Amino acid sequence: VCKIPGCTKRYTDPSSLRKHVKTVH
């Protein structure tokens, strides 16, 4: 789960989560 408040994205792959946080937030 993305830890950013208001963001409901969920990832099973830690690298995908990291990429999401870097690119989306």
Rank of each mutant, 00 (worst) to 15 (best):
P14Q: 09
V1P: 00
K3R: 05
K9G: 08
L17P: 06
P14I: 09
K9H: 11
R10L: 07
S16C: 09
P14N: 13
K22A: 15
C7W: 00
R10P: 06
P14R: 05
L17I: 05
P5C: 04
C7H: 04
R18A: 15
T23L: 09
K3S: 13
R18M: 15
C2T: 06
K19Y: 13
V1L: 05
V21T: 05
V24R: 07
I4G: 03
H20W: 00
V21K: 01
R18L: 14
H20C: 03
P14T: 11
I4D: 11
S15C: 10
C7R: 00
G6C: 00
T12Y: 02
D13T: 02
K3H: 06
C2V: 03
T8C: 10
P5Q: 11
C7E: 08
C7I: 01
K19I: 12
H20F: 00
H25Y: 00
K22L: 14
H25Q: 04
P14F: 07
R10F: 06
K22G: 12
C7S: 03
T8N: 14
K3Y: 10
S16T: 08
G6F: 01
G6S: 01
K9W: 13
V24A: 12
K22C: 11
R10A: 14
P5F: 08
H25L: 01
C2E: 04
T8G: 13
D13G: 01
T23F: 04
S16V: 11
T8H: 07
K9R: 06
K3F: 11
T8F: 08
K19H: 15
D13C: 08
V1F: 05
V1Y: 07
S15P: 07
H25K: 05
R18S: 15
H20G: 05
Y11T: 11
K22I: 07
I4K: 00
V21D: 10
P5W: 02
H20I: 00
K9S: 12
K9V: 11
R18P: 09
D13S: 08
K3N: 14
C2N: 05
V24M: 09
I4N: 10
D13W: 01
S16F: 06
D13L: 01
V21P: 03
L17S: 06
H25W: 01
G6L: 00
V21C: 03
K19Q: 11
K22Y: 14
L17G: 05
T8W: 01
C2M: 04
S15L: 11
P14E: 15
R18E: 15
V24W: 06
V1R: 00
P14C: 11
K22R: 12
L17T: 07
T23C: 05
K22T: 15
T8A: 11
I4S: 07
H25S: 04
K22D: 15
K22P: 06
Y11A: 07
G6W: 02
H25R: 01
I4R: 00
P5S: 11
P14H: 06
P5Y: 03
P5D: 09
L17D: 10
T23M: 07
H25M: 04
K9Y: 13
D13A: 05
R18D: 15
P5E: 13
C2L: 01
V21W: 03
H20E: 09
L17W: 02
L17A: 06
V24T: 12
C2Q: 03
Y11P: 06
G6T: 04
V1D: 12
C2F: 02
Y11K: 07
Y11G: 10
D13R: 02
D13H: 06
D13K: 03
I4H: 10
L17M: 11
Y11N: 07
S15R: 05
